[in-house]
Design a protein around this nucleic acid. Sequence first.
DNA 1: GTCTATAGTTGGATAGAC
DNA 2: GTCTATCCAACTATAGAC
Lengths: 210, 210
Amino acid sequence: MGIERHMPGRQPRTRIQKKNTETILEAALDVFSQHGFRGATLDQIAKAAGLSKPNLLYYFPSKVAIHRALIDGLMQTWLDPLRKMRADGDPIEELLAYVLRKLDMAREYPRESRLFANEIVQGAPNIMDKIEGELKDLVEEKAKVIEAWIATGKIAPVNPYHLLFSIWSTTQHYADFDAQVRAILHPEGDSHFTDAAEYLETLFRRMLTP
Amino acid sequence: MGIERHMPGRQPRTRIQKKNTETILEAALDVFSQHGFRGATLDQIAKAAGLSKPNLLYYFPSKVAIHRALIDGLMQTWLDPLRKMRADGDPIEELLAYVLRKLDMAREYPRESRLFANEIVQGAPNIMDKIEGELKDLVEEKAKVIEAWIATGKIAPVNPYHLLFSIWSTTQHYADFDAQVRAILHPEGDSHFTDAAEYLETLFRRMLTP
DNA sequence: GTCTATAGTTGGATAGAC
DNA sequence: GTCTATCCAACTATAGAC
């Protein structure tokens, strides 16, 4: 092997490095999503990962580096549901499928949703570049698709940007405001997601039907 | 006056005490809403209030006390729009008026919205009692009103809880995710709220019309 | 009532042994 | 690669002069 550069956070080489890197990111997702960046401590992450604090910093150079690695790795997953919306499908069914995919994300990846929510509520200090880049580009592209659907009378005329905002907000609400939702509904497990799916499908079907 | 108990944080007596208490709470709202509880520091609040750090702690016994006083003082304001929804008005117009009041709150009081959002995203550690108390009671009451409107065929049948969730999420989105909204729309000032109002009125009118 | 100075803790990051 | 010990900066809160 000879001399090896120490950048395991970027390029995990060995199996043990890869495993530890993933363990740390998993623990960091837990802690960052629950307490926000400033509220999270390396001690908490280390404990959750079952490693010592210095060992964390062997794999990542700093606290911000862990946070950044998390966000970079999750951004694609987060944009995926919108990417999958096909311009050549049935417009209403494509949009409703998007709504349900987004709701599924809120149910299956609530920590990821709260990670982003924490960031954006506080002004998106660490991800503004990605919002203004990847996200904005994707939104512009899909807004054009929606406008084309409107132009051909396939869906009712709506502001495509505010349509997307309302899809994001209504679905992510079940992850980001989970504490409030559960306090009001006190559901068993995720049972309320069934009602949510039915409600949101009705909401957007009525909005979009010409 | 004789011996005076030092509890200015709770019971401001003199004019200067009242003024300083309000100045502190105003500054604290700025800082807490932008950085969350852990992310906010007394230095930031003191600087924003134009006072020294120890002087802050003369009026409030601790950092948490400032936060608690803020939330206690704002909870009523926050529930007001829903309280104003009258059971004896025209159902659809009452609900749409509620939507627009809530959107107005997001425009006029974005800091308050983000203060609550920060809390709830992180599991509502400091306001769960109020969510399970005042908020839940109010929601139960208004859910009954909505169900009565459905029973008499005044509005389309919908799950009242999820209806309220969707009203909260769509309107508060413009305050809580302001950074993202502006990055995508880059509006001048609050100009996008006009489009949002039109969109949301259409959305909920179509949802509720029998 | 308000300030300077500081005590007491916590948290991010490093040193160095193994 | 991993740990113990530790440094140093930041932060909440208090002491005490004015």
